[in-house]
Amino acid sequence: MWINSILREVAGVTGLTFEYVYKSTIYGQDVHNYINAKDIDIVSCGNPTLEDVRKMKAFRGFHAIRDPRDMVVSGYFSHRNSHWFKPGTYPKEHQTQLRALGKNEGLHAEIEFSRRFLEPIADWDYSMPNVMELRFEELTSSPYDTFLDVFRFLGVLDEGAWTYRARFVDTSVYALNKAHRRYPRLMPTSLRKRHIRAEKLLGIVHKLRFSKMSKGRKRGEEDVSGHMRKGVPGDWRNHLTPDHVAHFKEAYPGLVSRLKYEPDESWGVAPRSNH
């Protein structure tokens, strides 16, 4: 959600088109067919599968993963307390179930429910030359440098001198594009800029940083009912029990070490002594 908001804002500033697709199918068609058929400049794919990505037209992108154990805990709180699901769907049933169960049982249920998020991560190809691989943990600990690196990799970062003229052009394009979105009849076209100024990007990351998205809370301060709940890596240790860990390892054998969040699969709730 946080990355998505940043990309949406970048599109707003540059006049580029943006679309967020989440499921493996959208409006009855496969994601890759949907994306290939449309002229979209920036696509944000939630939970992408490798199969879909391989069928997409030429693109340059980045892929952000997170410690799957934190995904389960984060998913549990979010799906139980704050996420909106369409009535009558399986996720909505899962939410109702989570609200009826205690935390212990709820986390077991979430481990199973997370298969839809964890399998695409497990099956991913982490060596695609056109895809920069990132970890959520890096993004949250050094968001400014990491987003600069991402946009540099994408080839859309403007690192030129920030002169008066450049500022004037940049602000004018921003104002016109804003007017286009608000009053499309009066301003029928937008001005597309293929590059974003480093300063603008940093300003967007700042504006949408975790503490603002979570209404003033700093990273690590918890609000169990908020979608931006806590944001601290390794929080799973505060919630998963040895039983949950055993269940997780059985359901997703080798996943944590394959993603290099642990050197091997001998990890447990207690931190390793040599960490």
Partner: peptide, 12 residues
């Protein structure tokens, strides 16, 4: 100053 003013000068 806004975030982009502060961070832009750090970037420069």
């Amino acid at each position: 100053p806004t975030g982009d003013i502060v961070l832009g000068r750090v970037y420069d």
